[in-house]
């Protein structure tokens, strides 16, 4: 088992190096310096700023410096856009906020869509199945943006006008568990509605495959109650694809949702990342992608291991 994990890790090291390099090269197509100088800046200011950012060095040296800080878990490099704030601090404050948005969203979506998918699969081909599938397709065909724009307008602004009391925040964020529903519930609901369509369809396909399996027929033939067939037999056997899908989604929880965070003013990872890209704040983009890529690779490996644990046919060689 450990040999397997180590082998996988070693195999993914070049992938990791390539990600960092690719990102560095892409970012450096732009000039991050001028925007950070004030009005009436001189050529000397420009040169000294470049030097301060280390951009005057050849790219392989910059690459080396970056790799070193990543592999020593040193995130103490300062943000270019906000002098005095380190990349590590930004990550530390932003990631929990993104998680406060994405984890409940993933949880609710997964639970509801599995439930709906089971229903759909159970009544496969009947009107209820068709209706659910069609609703999923309808939901998938509307742009994310439209959900957000109208969600904010009706869900936050109009609702408050009608009820005379604020229910959901229009924009902004305050930490604390008691504040969570006010600031986060609306974005979470929007996110659930958006991803419901995709998840329901996926899980339905999984369930459909299970309903055709022999053991369900056997269970039914034995006269097991329908709910038992559904929840115990079907769900248990559909666990592998479900867990895999959830596992693969996990690293994306950290990235947050750029659009939702931007619209609702939640300073999570998506928000920070987009403004870092817009402001040419290279250390933040690089540090963040390094962390994300690490998590992503880890989750791939973890998925492989899970497969092996759940499915005795797959072996860890």
């Amino acid at each position: 088992m450990w040999a397997f994990i180590i082998r996988k890790l070693v195999y993914n090291i070049p992938v990791y190096l390539a990600i960092i390099f690719l990102l560095m090269v892409l970012l450096r197509q732009r000039d991050p310096v001028t925007g950070k100088l004030g009005k009436n800046a001189t050529q000397e200011d420009y040169i000294s700023k470049r030097k301060e950012f280390g951009l005057d060095q050849p790219i392989y040296l910059q690459y080396g410096v970056l790799l070193k800080s990543i592999f020593t878990f040193d995130f103490s490099q300062e943000s270019w856009n906000e002098p005095g704030v380190t990349v590590g601090e930004k990550l530390r404050t932003a990631v929990p906020r993104s998680l406060a948005l994405t984890v409940p969203a993933l949880g609710i979506t997964t639970v509801i869509s599995i439930f709906v998918a089971m229903l759909s699969a159970f009544y496969r081909g009947r009107w209820i199945d068709r209706l659910l599938v069609f609703c999923a397709v309808l939901g998938m065909s509307v742009s994310f943006l439209v959900y957000i724009i109208f969600g904010q307008y009706f869900g936050a602004y109009k609702l408050q006008q009608w009820l005379g009391t604020p229910v959901f925040s229009i924009h902004g964020y305050e930490s604390g568990l008691l504040n969570w529903p006010f600031f986060m519930l609306l974005p979470v609901l929007i996110s659930v509605i958006v991803s419901m369509g995709y998840d329901t369809r996926f899980y339905r396909a999984v369930m459909v495959e299970e309903t055709q399996a022999d053991y369900i027929t056997t269970a039914r033939a034995k006269g097991a109650p329908q709910s038992k067939v559904m929840f115990v037999h079907m769900l248990r056997n559909a666990m592998i694809p479900i867990v895999t899908r959830v596992m693969i989604t996990l690293p994306f929880l950290v990235t947050g949702s750029i659009l939702l965070e931007e619209f609702f003013g939640i300073p999570g990872m998506g928000y920070v990342l987009l403004s870092a890209i817009r402001n040419d704040d290279f250390p933040v983009v690089e540090g963040f992608t390094a962390v994300f890529a690490g998590l992503f690779i880890m989750s791939i490996i973890a998925t492989d291991i899970l497969y092996a644990v759940f499915d005795p046919r797959v072996r860890l060689q």
Partner: peptide, 9 residues
């Protein structure tokens, strides 16, 4: 609850 919490904050 969040309707009630909103103004209280």
């Amino acid at each position: 609850t969040c309707g009630l919490l909103g103004p209280f904050s």
